[in-house]
Nucleic acid binder design. Sequence first.
DNA 1: CGGCATCCGGGAAGATACTG
DNA 2: CAGTATCTTCCCGGATGCCG
Lengths: 230, 230
Amino acid sequence: MELENLTDSRIARPRRYEDGCGMAHALDLLGDRWALLVVRELMLGPKRFSDIRADLPGISANTLTQRLEELERSGVVLRQTLPPPASGQVYGLTEWGYQSKPIMGALARWATRSPGHDVAQNFSPVSLLLSFQAMGQPGLPKDIDATFGFRFGRESYVSWIRDGAIGAERGDASGADVIFTGTPRAVASAVYGGASLHALEAEGALKVEGDRALASRFVTLFPLPEKAVV
Amino acid sequence: MELENLTDSRIARPRRYEDGCGMAHALDLLGDRWALLVVRELMLGPKRFSDIRADLPGISANTLTQRLEELERSGVVLRQTLPPPASGQVYGLTEWGYQSKPIMGALARWATRSPGHDVAQNFSPVSLLLSFQAMGQPGLPKDIDATFGFRFGRESYVSWIRDGAIGAERGDASGADVIFTGTPRAVASAVYGGASLHALEAEGALKVEGDRALASRFVTLFPLPEKAVV
DNA sequence: CGGCATCCGGGAAGATACTG
DNA sequence: CAGTATCTTCCCGGATGCCG
């Protein structure tokens, strides 16, 4: 009796859309609630279950477990067991999963043109760094060659701009030409909301170290695309 | 009492993800079940309610109504009332909605690399034509300059290849250099499944008119990307 | 034909609590 | 820390019926 209700992880979930189109298959892979945001959180390197959960406010442990299982089964996510002493598990993207990055960037860029998009929301650390890469398309000034560090609570990230392109990864912020310390939201309010760095520092929302002129220029590098006229 | 449960269409649906990231907003716009496929169906020109529904087997009238409402409210879809004698309404994409096309193409291309993707499924007429545009990226042979007509039941489409690029729209197939008549699935089995045109014609699944050599070449132009190794 | 309103059943998501 | 168990709620799909 109970066996009929058994959901066996070895049995692939049935297709949701009977459709050979690649877009429909993309929805089978990433169309579940939260799935795309889980992938986003792994885009700058593997993370632990709790860290993903912490950066995705609103997701339940239950749902995150399920999404990670499905993404692993479909070959987008890879579960890795860390060697001691840092024992535990982390989830990362497969090579193929990682290749969705520019597409997601383009999608994000498209969506910011929505009249309903409000940039004064929360950003996760990863989503902020990714947004720089998305909004830095198609080109940044070629005369910049510098590194930028970000310290958000326990997580820290480094981004570099060179030859008109921008990269980013999780890592040590020390030694960067500019270091921002605060919340992703505070940085976003400077970059996207036009808030002044001085004001943010005055109210204690942000700390800026290093080359201040470079910092002031950094926040102007990522103009949002124009809103769509509807 | 009942008023508390009233869902007023004038009140915007609350954000589902409290997240300023563009990708999260994209999910607010297109993340609902079927939403992306509805947009896909409009990508080659406006369609009527029933025609959308007919090409999305499995969607309920109820859900389609709701998706169209939401997409219209968010500025992706535009509802137009046709003048007599063709009275009735059609749904089309806004300029901004239409601009998601290359992104969706890239997403579809990415998804076909999935080990779980099976091309031997149903295609809607629109999804087939769009798949040609997606798989024809980044380039087609520059020595082709021709038009291709497709007749799928009542709907017919025209596609043209020139200067290494491919375009498509709903329209009259007459006068094209090659005309395919049959089901989208039959054409897909030739283009993506390696089925021979002769065999398909022999079993009555497809009719090919016009330049047969060109038709034979056409079906080789859209190789699927390699499967991802996982 | 082109929808919209309503009720029903199933399943996925959320909240909370609990376990190794 | 990394999940599981349970309960509740909400969304989706199917069917039906109404209306212009």
